[in-house]
Design a protein around this nucleic acid. Structure first.
Length: 326
DNA sequence: GTTTATCGTACCTTCACAAG
DNA sequence: CTTGTGAAGGTACGATAAAC
């Protein structure tokens, strides 16, 4: 959130079946290092045949490299450097950051039928400024918005109203606090910080006392909570907090670490939710702590597959997992 | 050095709905 | 009724940083 990321726009070119027009430049150090400027001719590869990546400048057309902006393109606040990244510090007022956090709020709660563009329209019309405002939208608010109408409005309003009962974990997930991930939220709740008040009033010292959280992280999370107080309060004012479902600890899945790669017979999300609901943990990569890699492939170039082979992690098929889950 | 987790990014396909 | 737009769902992985 709030990071200014340079993106290269290139003349469209087909690489392994896809037309590439943009490639991330990650940060300004990279531009300097590769000495990239507008109109230069570059070599692009798709890493892992997916992500377009600028390898190097092949022909230098313009001298020097592109300089980083000094002010936020959205709110014109002077930018600050945080490690390799340029950040806009205006977290709660910068329009881009507000839109970004509203979008992530909807994403996290899986509010369907509402996209970036719709959120931007609602924001411009002053209908939604904080996430809690979503809950007060009426179908009539959509009638005069170009591209939307009665049907869309009804769907969106119904979707939002169906997200009124939330667990504390869901609320904190949806609050989009940097470095305060699901895993850490669960850790805090389990450590006894199990009400919104306790979380909102948590101290750096209390955070630092938790395993895996030292002073740097503790301060970031603390600051993140302070920056998001209005945001969180607006959610709390419009929802009902419910207790989470209890998990059956007898399951063979409980407490085990999983990773998934490749195509499945069901949407990936379905399998992931099954793992979580049975008390399993999901990781985005395979390490020595992984218990099972689930895949239907017998050979694959993905890093997950290769790591599993290397580390001797048990590779099971989707159907083997389903047997385990019974 | 290794582990964990987050963020950022492209693009395809399908389908629902708005607008004329 | 037709056409166009936009939402959703799906996939992979690199770069990075703090913790351990």
């Amino acid at each position: 959130m709030g990071t200014i990321t340079p993106v290269a726009q290139v003349d469209p070119i087909e690489i392994s079946g896809a037309i590439i027009t943009y490639a991330s430049l990650a940060n300004y150090d990279l531009i300097k290092e590769k000495n990239i400027n507008i109109n230069d001719i570059v070599e692009i590869q798709r890493r892992g045949d997916v992500i377009p990546h600028i390898e190097k400048v092949v022909t230098k057309i313009s001298s020097g490299y592109i300089l980083a902006p000094t002010h936020c393109p959205s709110c014109h606040t002077p930018l600050i450097q945080e490690n390799k990244f340029l950040k806009c510090p205006n977290i709660s007022k910068c329009p881009s950051q507000i839109l970004g956090s509203l979008r992530l709020f909807c994403d996290t709660l899986e509010i369907k039928g509402i996209s970036d563009k719709t959120i931007a329209k609602l924001y411009q019309l002053n209908l939604v400024k904080l996430p809690g405002d979503f809950y007060n939208l009426k179908v009539s608010d959509f009638e005069n918005i170009a591209g939307l109408g009665n049907k869309s409005g009804t769907n969106i309003v119904n979707e939002i109203q169906s997200k009124k009962n939330l667990t504390l974990k869901q609320i904190l997930d949806a609050a989009i606090i940097p470095n305060f991930s699901s895993q850490r939220i669960i850790q805090l709740i389990n450590a006894g910080f199990n009400t919104p008040e306790k979380i909102l009033n948590i101290t750096v010292a209390q955070l630092e006392a938790l395993s895996g959280i030292q002073i740097t992280l503790a301060e970031k999370i603390y600051q993140g909570i302070q920056d998001r107080k209005d945001f969180i309060q607006s959610i709390l004012n419009n929802i009902v907090i419910v207790k989470p479902k209890t998990i059956n600890q007898e399951s063979k899945i409980f407490g085990k670490n999983f990773a998934v790669t490749g195509d499945l017979s069901v949407p990936r999300k379905v399998l992931e939710e099954k793992i979580i609901s049975l008390g399993g943990k999901l990781a985005s990569s395979v390490t020595s702590n992984t218990n099972y890699l689930i895949t239907n492939e017998s050979e694959s170039n993905s890093s997950k597959f290769k790591n599993a082979k290397k580390l001797g992690i048990k590779i099971i098929s989707e159907s083997e997992f389903n047997q385990l889950a019974e």
